[in-house]
Each structure stands twice: as C-alpha cells, then as structure tokens.
Amino acid sequence: MPDKTTEPAMQVIDLRPPDDGILAQMLRLGLRFDHSDDGSSQSWIDPERQLRADFAGVDAETVVFTDLQTRLCTEVPAANLPRISDIITWQSAQGSED
C-alpha cells in the first residue's frame, strides 16, 4: 500500500482572467472568444447581437466594437471598458422594440 504522506496535495487550476483585464470585460459584456489570426490579436463575438470586438492583444489600449449587420464600428479605450454597461446593435435593438 502506498505511503499517503508522500502523495502530492490536490491543487486547483484557476483559468479565469484577471478581473481588471480586457478578457474579463469581454466576458462581462456577453462576448466569447472567436479567433486569433496571428496568435496575439483577438476577435470576440456575441452571435445573438451580431457584435464583434477586436483588439491587438491582452495588453491592447483600444478595442474596436463592430455591428456585423451594419458594419458600423466604434473604437473604445480599454480603460473605459469597465464603464460600459451595454452595447446596442441593429439586431439587439430589433428585439427590444416588441
């Protein structure tokens, strides 16, 4: 029978992003990771709202939000992300008028 005192202690792996980072803000706003073209830039999407967010990397200074139906976009400083409560797109506005 193995000696239980030599077994390593159980560990927990925490894969959550830092609360103050861009990744946590994307999740809070309802987006999910979609793809990376070069390994550092990232595209996140919310398919229901037809919304995409693009940024150069987790240390990016800005995020570009694009309405995928109208192709209208806006660039937001990463420091302002915590102050954004919602992002309205053509698609999301259609559902709210019922």
Rank of each mutant, 00 (worst) to 15 (best):
V58E: 04
E61S: 13
S43F: 05
H35S: 11
L81S: 03
V63F: 01
Q69G: 09
V58K: 06
L68T: 14
D38E: 14
R71Y: 05
E48P: 02
T74M: 01
D59Y: 06
T62S: 15
W44T: 02
D59C: 07
I45C: 09
E75Y: 01
L51A: 05
E75V: 06
A56T: 15
R52P: 00
A53P: 04
H35T: 09
V63M: 01
P77E: 13
T70D: 08
V63D: 00
V63C: 01
A79Y: 12
L72V: 05
T74C: 02
G39L: 07
A53H: 03
G57R: 13
V58H: 04
S43G: 12
S40K: 12
V76P: 00
A56V: 12
A78W: 10
G39T: 06
H35C: 06
E75A: 07
L81Q: 03
H35Y: 08
D59W: 05
E61Y: 06
G57H: 11
G57M: 08
S43I: 07
E48G: 09
T70R: 02
H35F: 06
A53V: 04
E61I: 03
D54S: 10
A78D: 08
D38C: 12
R52C: 01
L51F: 07
L72Y: 06
V76I: 10
D59G: 11
R49C: 08
R71W: 03
Q69A: 09
P77N: 08
E48H: 07
P77R: 07
E61W: 05
S40E: 15
R49W: 09
L72H: 10
Q50S: 10
Q69S: 11
A56K: 11
A60N: 04
L72D: 14
D46T: 10
T74S: 02
S40W: 08
R49G: 11
P47C: 09
A56F: 06
E75D: 05
L68G: 04
D38Y: 15
L81E: 04
D38V: 12
R71I: 05
A78K: 10
Q42V: 13
G39R: 05
V64Q: 15
R49V: 04
A53I: 03
E75N: 05
D67Y: 00
R52L: 03
G39I: 08
F65Q: 00
P47D: 12
G57V: 15
A56E: 14
P47F: 09
F65I: 00
V58G: 13
T62A: 14
S36V: 10
F65Y: 04
H35M: 08
V63T: 03
D59A: 14
R49D: 11
S40Q: 12
R49A: 15
D54Q: 06
W44G: 01
T62Y: 14
Q42C: 13
V64D: 10
L51S: 06
T74Q: 02
D38T: 14
P77M: 11
F65A: 00
T62V: 15
P77L: 12
E61P: 03
I45E: 07
F55R: 03
A78M: 08
R49H: 14
P47Y: 12
A78Y: 08
E48Q: 12
S40F: 08
Q69M: 10
F55E: 01
R71F: 02
T66E: 14
E61Q: 13
G39A: 06
T62N: 15
Q42N: 13
L72A: 14
L81H: 04
L51M: 13
S41D: 15
R52A: 04
V58A: 07
A60L: 03
W44M: 01
A78N: 10
